[in-house]
Design a protein around this nucleic acid. Structure first.
Length: 971
RNA sequence: GCGAGAGUGGCGGAACUGGUAGACGCGCUGGACUUAGGAUCCAGUGGCUUCGGCCGUGGGGGUUCAAGUCCCCCCUCUCGCACCA
């Protein structure tokens, strides 16, 4: 029969939904498992990466449900942040790129696209579509608890406000100031992914050293404030417009571009007038420390876009300065127009202030000579600067002329020096981007100091300690990932938790700020436990006050008063609290590994801050990052695989199995079209085999295994006839598989689980059917266990086969099989191994001799060889002498000294190859399999024990017979 | 640069505490069954080979009776390093 996955999947999804089997309510005394998937962001359709992570959650949910846990697996949607509202705005403006993404990548039809100017509409569109996909994918979700974030959901909004009010109360939220990369056009911080250029760029702090110039200051920007002691001239760009600024009570002269930055970084800044660069050249400013006159010289290399546009010159330690100065000194004519004379130029001499072993008096001069740098346009100046900077920073020591800093290392003195200079009003600071940043809106970005920004105090050591405590009690899967959490907790610093743009929940005490996306996704799982009531009873947002949440989540307050104050039924309030108490904490949460340094760690932080210890998270699972055909998945590359497309192409089971089988641990899985096709074919084959078993002759189809009292428990196998080794073998193997698969699911090792539950059992069943006439009852039982083991991975197919077997109710809520240790059968295992190996050996003999066999004779090992083998195995360091000593003590062996020594020599040669199997009665095992051998090779087969006298043995083969390696004669 | 993970056949990938490397799947080769087969079943499949073996887990050293696995050095790839979902 054809496997029509569409028909099967649609029918069963509806069946599950109609029966409501995935809806979970508290059941007294029944253990629960609470599983959550990080709610997806709805600015586009779900993709195959979401599906990987969510399917891992669903596998765990289905597994635990079958194990008898009351499993709650809810779902919600994340709308917080800029992208949805940004996209809506771009659609409104007719942005072609954006419209193309919606149309071509996401497949949004034109009539829908028209409404995409509204962020709420975009969200609702994708929620609808995604919900459909998740249902189709067979996730066992309790949809009654569905919700979405931001103020678009007033009740959830209240929940986040409760969270933040509580955090603030506890002192985990504070006000702060912070430099960010800022787009002056969008009027918002620009994150990495919002940049056309400058990914990875960060704000860098420059020290401004203020040189008095007439009634103002020239603030020279530098990363090397200690070199102030070596300044001999000043550089300004003659072709640049400078601006005189009022900065507080001072006046600064900086480039026009710098003025715009300073406005974003300082208080009380106003522009006074424009000053042309060339007007200032040839005049003198005053050194802030030595008070000496410093000549201002022209320099084209001064970039008005970089920091203040004012550069101090330290030719002794800065190659640029040295080379530029030399260029001018060589050609005094060029600066004559600024009224600069040769004498003025010649009086400028480098001042050395840093001592370093690798260089002499003037390192910058030395390196410029060494590298034969021609002039200030030489591109290698960059490299020279780098070399000197590094060498001096790590190894340099300040000289006598630096006053109180003399003798100190450069790397140690920086901070102290800046602090000192700031104190005496000589230094200030400004921020600059570490490299050019261009926003997606095509605007060049600057650094802005955000004031009155709200921060989560992740730097708090006490908080961190409690997070570490929580982490210690948690299970991290895979275990390797734990160190990533520890590392993250270590470096985590205060984090801005609110933004001004995009969608979100306003901070209750400062409503112009909205809780940003990584900060409103940390404890929302608690909301699932009450969203059922919110949805069902349409509880109003205004009734969800802080005291209500305090009561439900923390057990604080008097229930009657709270009920009255908030117009809520007391019973309802009680039920909400009971629901929370029952289902919390979250037992299992899973996501991709990229979320460890932020979301997953924040998740622990907030739980620890808000809830009692018994509500802290239990297990976190992580998986790798998915790629498509070996490439990173991205919309711009056009290799974006949506869940919807995968489902329509391959169906749910194939999609699930392909994902689950694609990787394990932290390895990055790769989605390949071909793998999906392979899996699909294998599933077809499995379906055929299952139907074949069901339709086999024998007891009518109900063969497997139910009893009325416990509808879905597999039948105790003891009732089967286990006379044949092959029957004992397959049941024994099955127990081993049950144990392994159970352990794999427990640790969410889906690849291993699927390997065993699908392929390994498949292989065993094939062997069973080939080896002898199969017993229908046994196959029915195997299939019954088999579909249970597969149900978490391929729920539709497993469920369908289960129902075709005549199973009662739904497999999805049937019992998980338990391994029956008493059925593990090493003897049968060894026996089958012997048969398999013997068949292989005969095969290769036939191949080499090219005989078409008329008769095959198999000679099994004599007992004494087993005995000798056991002696060898029993010795820690076997050698000939010790083995023979032992053997000669045995009366049965004594008479065979010569033969034994020959055999032992052989054994010791291949000592590493000895299999440690228990002795079996080979003669009996092979005799039982005579039928199998004759069928396989199409001829008469005889078995003799090699130890027996007077047996048919024309080529004297029997002496070669050894344990697990019978001798073979073919004619 | 820092932290984490990884590098194994033609391919995807196994190998838990060091113990027959390449499980399982794909592909390929041969065979069986077939009106047919892109179906199914069976067998073979790391390289070299004078057919006795020899060499093989990114590269180079080391520990051990025994190393993909442990130790040291180096190379390459992936993810993360925050105001972004």
């Amino acid at each position: 029969m054809e496997r029509n996955f569409k028909e099967i999947e649609e029918r069963l999804a509806k069946g599950w939904e109609d029966a409501g089997i995935f809806e979970a309510d508290p059941i007294k005394g029944k253990p629960k498992t609470f599983i959550t998937f990080p709610f997806p962001y709805m600015n586009g359709p779900l993709h195959i990466g979401h599906a990987l992570t969510s399917t891992r959650c669903d596998v765990y949910a289905r597994f635990k449900r079958m194990q008898g846990y009351n499993v709650l697996f809810p779902w919600a949607w994340h709308l917080t942040g800029e992208p949805i509202s940004g996209a809506a705005l771009r659609v409104k403006k007719g942005d072609r790129e954006q419209i193309k993404i919606f149309k071509e990548m996401d497949g949004v039809p034109d009539e829908e696209l028209e409404k995409f100017t509204d962020p709420e509409y975009i969200a609702s569109y994708y929620i609808k579509e995604s919900k459909q996909s998740i249902k189709q994918l067979g996730h066992s979700i309790d949809w009654r608890r569905e919700f979405h974030t931001t103020e678009l959901h007033p009740q959830f909004n209240k929940f986040i406000q409760w969270q933040y009010l509580t955090l603030k109360e506890k002192g985990y939220v504070k006000k702060g100031t912070h430099p960010v990369i800022w787009c002056p056009n969008c009027l918002s911080p620009t994150g990495d992914h919002d940049r056309l250029k400058g990914e990875g760029a960060t704000p860098v702090e420059f020290t401004l050293l203020k040189f008095k110039f007439e009634d103002a200051y020239l603030p020279a920007a530098t990363l090397r404030p200690e070199t102030i002691f070596g300044v001999v001239n000043m550089w300004l760009n003659p072709d640049v417009d400078y601006v005189k600024l009022k900065v507080g009570s001072e006046k600064w002269i900086v480039s026009r571009q710098a003025a715009e930055k300073i406005k974003e970084q300082k208080e009380d800044v106003a522009e006074i007038e424009t000053v042309m660069g060339k007007e200032m050249i040839g005049r003198y400013c005053t050194h802030p420390i030595s008070k000496e006159d410093i000549l201002i010289l022209p320099a084209a290399f001064v970039d008005p876009d970089n920091s203040s546009g004012v550069v101090m010159s330290v030719p002794s330690h800065a190659p640029y300065d040295f080379v530029a100065l030399k260029d001018i000194q060589k050609d005094p004519e060029s600066v004559k127009k600024y009224n600069i004379t040769k004498e003025m130029l010649d009086s400028i001499k480098p001042i050395s202030l840093i001592e370093i072993d690798a260089f002499g008096e003037h390192p910058a001069i030395e390196i410029s000579d060494r590298m034969k740098i021609k002039d200030q346009n030489d591109p290698r100046l960059e490299e020279a600067t780098e070399i000197i900077y590094r060498a001096e920073f790590y190894k340099g020591i300040l000289k006598e002329n630096t006053g109180k800093y003399a003798g100190m290392k450069v790397m140690e003195v920086k901070k102290m020096l800046v602090a000192d200079f700031e104190k005496i009003g000589v230094a200030d600071r400004m921020y600059e981007v570490s490299e050019e940043v261009i926003c997606r809106c095509n605007t060049r970005n600057i650094v802005k100091i955000l004031k009155n920004q709200w921060f989560l105090k992740y730097s708090d050591e006490e908080w961190k300690d409690r997070v570490r405590e929580a982490l210690n009690d948690m299970i991290i899967l895979p275990h390797d990932a734990r160190s990533n959490f520890e590392y993250t907790i270590g470096w985590l610093d205060d984090k801005a938790c609110a933004r001004k743009g995009g969608l979100g929940t306003p901070l209750p005490w400062d409503r112009e700020w909205k809780v940003e996306t990584l900060s409103d996704s940390t404890v929302y799982m608690a909301f699932y436990t009450i969203s059922k009531f919110v949805n069902e009873y349409k509880i109003k947002a205004e009734n969800l006050t802080k005291e209500v949440f305090d009561f439900v989540f923390l057990g604080i307050g008097d229930i009657s008063k709270i009920a009255e104050n908030n117009n809520l039924d007391e019973e309802l309030l009680k039920e909400m609290k009971a629901e929370f108490d029952y289902f919390m904490p979250v037992d299992f949460r899973n996501s991709a590994k990229e979320l460890i340094p932020n979301h997953l760690t924040f998740y622990i932080f907030h739980h620890v801050a808000l809830f009692k210890k018994d509500k802290w998270p239990r297990i976190i699972g992580v998986n790798g990052m998915i790629s498509i055909e070996g490439d990173k998945m991205s919309k711009s590359k056009g290799n974006f695989v949506t869940l919807k497309n995968a489902l329509s192409k391959y169906g749910a089971d194939t999609t699930r199995a392909t994902l689950l089988y694609s990787s394990e641990g932290m390895k990055d899985p790769d989605w390949r079209f071909k793998s999906a096709m392979d899996i699909s074919k294998r599933l077809d084959a499995f379906y055929d085999l299952a139907l074949q078993i069901i339709e086999m002759d024998g007891e009518p189809g109900t063969g497997s295994a139910r009893d009325e009292s416990d509808a879905n428990q597999p039948k105790p196998p003891a009732a089967f006839s286990l006379k044949r080794q092959i029957d004992r073998w397959i049941l024994g193997r099955l127990q081993g598989h049950i144990k392994k698969v159970t352990d794999d699911y427990e640790n969410v090792r889906t690849r291993s689980a699927f390997q065993t539950a699908f392929f390994d059992i498949f292989k065993d069943v094939r062997w069973y059917m080939r080896r002898d006439v199969p017993q229908k009852e046994i196959l029915n039982h195997v299939l019954d266990v088999w579909v249970r083991l597969l149900a978490p991975c391929i729920p539709f197919l497993a469920e369908d086969i289960f129902s075709k077997m005549g199973g009662n109710g739904f497999l999805s809520v049937s019992r998980w099989p338990e391994a029956d240790e008493s059925l593990l059968n090493e003897e049968a295992e060894t026996g089958e191994r012997l048969i398999e190996k013997t068949a292989e050996d005969i095969d290769s003999i036939l191949k080499v001799t090219k005989i078409k066999p008329k008769k095959i004779v198999i000679y099994t090992s004599p007992i004494w060889k087993w005995q000798v083998l056991e002696i060898v195995r029993g010795l820690e360091k076997p050698d000939m002498k010790r083995v023979m000593e032992r053997a000669m003590k045995n009366d049965e062996l004594k008479s065979k000294g010569k033969e034994i020594s020959r055999y032992v020599t052989d054994l010791l040669k291949n000592i590493t190859k000895i299999e440690s199997r228990k002795r079996i009665d080979e003669y009996m095992v092979l005799s039982e399999a005579v039928g199998f051998f004759s069928r396989e090779f199409g001829c008469e087969v005889e078995i003799f024990p090699a130890g027996k006298r007077d047996i048919f043995d024309p080529l004297n083969k029997k002496n070669q017979a050894a344990p697990m390696k019978p001798a073979i004669y073919v004619e």
